[in-house]
């Protein structure tokens, strides 16, 4: 598909979601998938700063735990945290460069082990303040162009808007509360992955796939359904144990 066509699709999808009652984590995960397609990268993640100014993973193009862990590693080193602190994008960082490995001794080998050769970080901005970062990974030697970077920035801005647009259980009006709700939702989701994996004797990744397929098919918000499951208010026997895509 031509990029212009892809872009149009993303635009329609984003507009559709934002005027509706959407689930933030699910939205950001889809947005991450679109980033991967549009920017021709291998993986994308959305990171948001918590009250300690530490970056937490909100969503990634692939819910695979290993990828989530790689993004989580960037809480104290790597391009995302530098981008968050400086407010400037960090693009086309070569992970095979010994200087890079020296600067980020934990992050670089882990990223290399996952097959990534380069990485980028784009700031998520809110009225002059940086609230998080978009992380992009590449498995082939291909630089992001200036146009790619501009597009990545636009997608990062969409992620910020979505965070501020989500409807929370607290009906909160303030930005700080929206950010906290998003971070809490992510943690609940992880706890529920564990609960379902153990109930069903499957891996956490398989549990999530089945859970998400069910939520999407029945128009449940992921975050709301996850809270109900964690609180024992939802009979998980209703959820088919294998994901149907």
């Amino acid at each position: 598909m031509a990029r212009e066509q892809q872009l149009t699709q993303v635009f329609v999808e984003v507009a559709d979601s934002l005027i509706d009652d959407f689930d933030l984590i699910d939205f950001l995960q889809r947005l991450s998938e679109r980033c991967v397609e549009l920017l021709d990268v291998a993986a994308c993640g959305v990171l948001l700063a918590d009250e300690h100014d530490v970056l937490q993973v909100l969503a990634a193009s692939d819910e695979d735990t290993r990828l989530l862990e790689l993004f989580a590693l960037q809480n104290n080193q790597g391009p995302c945290v530098e981008c968050y602190r400086s407010g400037q994008p960090r693009t086309n960082i070569n992970l095979t460069d010994p200087g890079v490995a020296e600067a980020w001794p934990q992050f670089t080998p882990e990223a290399r082990q996952s097959g990534f050769v380069s990485t980028n970080a784009i700031p998520m901005r809110l009225r002059g303040k940086v609230i998080g970062a978009l992380g992009l990974f590449q498995t082939i030697d291909r630089d992001l162009s200036e146009a790619d970077t501009a597009l990545a920035q636009a997608l990062a801005d969409v992620a910020t808007i979505a965070i501020l647009q989500q409807r929370t259980l607290a009906h909160s009006e303030t930005e700080r509360s929206q950010l906290q709700y998003a971070l809490t939702s992510r943690i609940v989701l992880e706890q529920v992955k564990g609960i379902l994996a153990e109930r069903w004797h499957v891996t956490t990744d398989e549990a999530f796939a089945a859970f998400r397929a069910y939520a999407r098919a029945h128009h449940h918000q992921l975050s709301v359904l996850a809270r109900r499951i964690a609180d024992g208010e939802f009979d998980t026997a209703q959820i088919p144990r294998t994901a149907h895509h």
Partner: peptide
């Protein structure tokens, strides 16, 4: 203990242990 709580796997393990 702040750092481990950043990791999805700690929350996943919490969920698993709660069922076990």
């Amino acid at each position: 203990d702040k750092a481990p709580l950043l990791h999805a796997v700690v929350h996943q393990a919490t969920g698993m242990v709660s069922v076990q």
